[in-house]
Design a protein around this nucleic acid. Sequence first.
DNA 1: ACAATAGTGTCTATCAGACATTATCCG
DNA 2: CGGATAATGTCTGATAGACACTATTGT
Lengths: 248, 248
Amino acid sequence: MSAIVSSPYRQSDDNPILGGVYSPSDFPPFAVTVDLVVLTVRSDALCALLVRRGEAPFLGRWALPGGFVRVSESVDAAAARELAEETGVTGLHLEQLATYGEPRRDPRMRVVSVAYLALAPDLPVPVAGTDAAAASWVPVSEVSSLAFDHSRILSDGVERARAKLEYTPLGTAFCSAEFTVAELRRVYEIVWGVSLDPRNFHRKVTGVEGLLVATGETTARDGGRPAALFRRGSAAVLYPPLVRASGV
Amino acid sequence: MSAIVSSPYRQSDDNPILGGVYSPSDFPPFAVTVDLVVLTVRSDALCALLVRRGEAPFLGRWALPGGFVRVSESVDAAAARELAEETGVTGLHLEQLATYGEPRRDPRMRVVSVAYLALAPDLPVPVAGTDAAAASWVPVSEVSSLAFDHSRILSDGVERARAKLEYTPLGTAFCSAEFTVAELRRVYEIVWGVSLDPRNFHRKVTGVEGLLVATGETTARDGGRPAALFRRGSAAVLYPPLVRASGV
DNA sequence: ACAATAGTGTCTATCAGACATTATCCG
DNA sequence: CGGATAATGTCTGATAGACACTATTGT
């Protein structure tokens, strides 16, 4: 067992497994990180949690929160840990998005990053992460070019979120524990960038088995007739789905 | 820049990025591999391409084909390379499935594996890979326990394929270049494990814009009235989708 | 002729979308 | 009361699914 050369960029492109049993010195070393696309709906916009980089490369540029996977934790656990560190909240919806592994996506060394998508209700204030100079919610429509390939990752995450609203109950992940049908509708309208018929939307979501659980309470926070309050139900899929780009 | 210790299992669980600029010696080393779920439809069954392991651990057990990502190639390129090596065919549909990163999923060292899903027409014979003792098409219903966590990866891939048939034209990826509506229907029936109404299926798939392109030719390979032959169209999504667990 | 498969037509219950109406708050 | 929002009801065109029927081959 010999030491690995410190540069991750080996010149040889030979298949390291050829020629028999491999040992740790036979494979090229990679760093593995997690990057988080954390989305929320606040002040009438779909927003992503971004951090401002405090070091080179891309010093001062916005980037997705994330960090290295530790050697004794699973990749999923690393994502959950980073999410808790960045938002200060646990129990958020978190799912794997995709893995990004271009050779030069990080100019310093070979890094493979596993991206995760998290959907959060409107949290009070982003917690400044341990490894980031500043954290902030930024409307996705105003995000320009992020560090590394994070712009691509963010748009993949936004597209995934938009698609997931169609056939899963994840729209409720953007709402607080108790919410009205109108608040859920606003989530759909903002995430999809369309306007939906309040009457048809109400009929649709209240008709889906297991999507909403009435609390019996009402609220009149927006004036007008008080609206019934609901909690998330146990439904795992939305059937029939809500179809994007329609009157619902 | 110091050499990395050869054991990938560092004892320290500290965040390697804390305390300033990191260098390659600051991050824990991982091996990165690709695993392939290659599916085809042959002899009335959904089959996966499996290889028999020629070395420990799991010597003699069936496993998914795959291999190490080389240091100068992207993860996607590694998957495409391995697929070409295993099947001898290029141009197959290939998409990322998920990434599996439990700490002890490989008993020898820390390996993060990016799994890919490939759909193939009925290929003549699997090519014995360079690093596998034998390769074979195995009906997924007869697959028992595979090496590593490959059983889990395979079932994730099968479920993804089943879901993709609903709203994408990927059913045609299981067919050869020219095919009949009945052959496409058999694909759906076998992958989903249901029986579909031939008349409604015909009306449905021929009604989707851009899914099928008539060649003008016909064939009578199954007796009866000759069937029109089609090629894959350019449609990227199936709208309206075909719904599983229905009469179509 | 008959069997077998391909392809078209028809009917009906259901549903999405448009929109009217009623209900219940606040000021 | 008027304004605002919530919730329910009605109508219509489109469609999924069930199934009858016609078309074209081989034996």
